[in-house]
């Protein structure tokens, strides 16, 4: 895994906000930024068992002449080095293959639909397919540049959620931001979750106060979400219980992304982090 974040640049004011979000994220996590300026309306990502065909919103390809210039200016102004991804392999001459061995990738809530559709509760199908298959977590920024000063991990006990806690700890140590754990009790006592944390050697950090654990025993999860600070990065595990089950019974990720406008880092089922 390369220590890099992949950002697909959209040469619009909206894309600028996204890029600023990515730059801030990279600085906090001490990750290098790799920017891809698309030249074709589609690109492919070959994951382990699936090819994700990402069809880009037409705004990505608009005004290609200024794209590189704009991106370079934004990046250097913010004290980072511009580093562009030139696709080396092509499945067909207009279908570049983008490597998949990054540490993170930034996807706005939608990459294929027009940016006017971007709103709470909507995550585009291509972004979902990347989340489902990627070995890296996906960073979903806010529509407008927002700095975050703390980290909120949603811990529901699943395998992905454990990964989310581990990654949250890594980022909180790297950026020196406080880490909060949010758990909504679902008919299970706190000891159940405590046991999972202990099995994964994470209980120590909770007990010594490095992690603050906020445990909702009562109330609805939707309402409790107000306790999440507005300036925190939300780490959420996705599809931890299998895709079909989550579609039928609803998932935590869906609830969170419908309600929380915060920047999010989504940890998919194939993430090799933690």
């Amino acid at each position: 895994m390369k220590d890099e974040l992949l950002h697909v640049y959209r040469n619009t004011p909206f894309g600028r906000e996204t890029l600023l979000n990515s730059i801030y994220f990279c600085k906090q996590t001490k990750t290098s930024l790799k920017v891809y300026i698309p030249e074709h309306p589609q690109f492919l990502m070959y994951f382990q068992n699936e090819i994700a065909t990402v069809e880009l919103d037409r705004a990505f390809l608009r005004s290609p002449k200024t794209a590189r210039e704009h991106a370079e200016a934004i990046i250097t102004e913010n004290g980072m080095k511009p580093n562009f991804l030139e696709p080396k392999r092509f499945t067909a001459s207009t279908l570049p293959d983008i490597p998949v061995d990054f540490r993170f990738m930034t996807c706005p809530r939608s990459i294929s639909d027009l940016s006017t559709k971007i709103s709470l509760g909507h995550i585009g199908p291509k972004v979902r397919s990347v989340i489902k298959n990627a070995a890296f977590p996906v960073f979903i920024p806010t529509p407008v540049y927002k700095q975050w000063k703390s980290i909120a991990v949603f811990f529901g006990g699943s395998h992905n959620a454990v990964n989310a806690v581990k990654l949250g700890m890594e980022i909180s140590r790297c950026a020196d931001f406080p880490l909060r754990l949010f758990t909504q009790a679902e008919k299970l006592p706190q000891s159940h979750y405590r046991k999972i944390l202990r099995e994964n050697h994470l209980l120590g950090e909770v007990e010594n106060g490095e992690i603050e654990w906020i445990f909702f025993e009562k109330g609805k999860f939707r309402e409790n979400l107000f306790a999440v600070p507005h300036d925190s990065l939300a780490l959420v595990g996705a599809y931890g219980h299998g895709v079909i089950k989550e579609v039928l019974f609803g998932s935590m990720m869906e609830e969170i992304q419908t309600i929380l406008p915060n920047p999010m880092l989504i940890i998919g089922p194939h993430c090799a982090c933690g």
Partner: peptide, 17 residues
């Protein structure tokens, strides 16, 4: 789906993907 008659895509996928 990208153009072309397809067989090169199959060969590419076999040899590299």
């Amino acid at each position: 789906d990208g153009g072309g008659h397809g067989v090169p895509e199959v060969i590419y996928s076999i040899s590299q993907r």
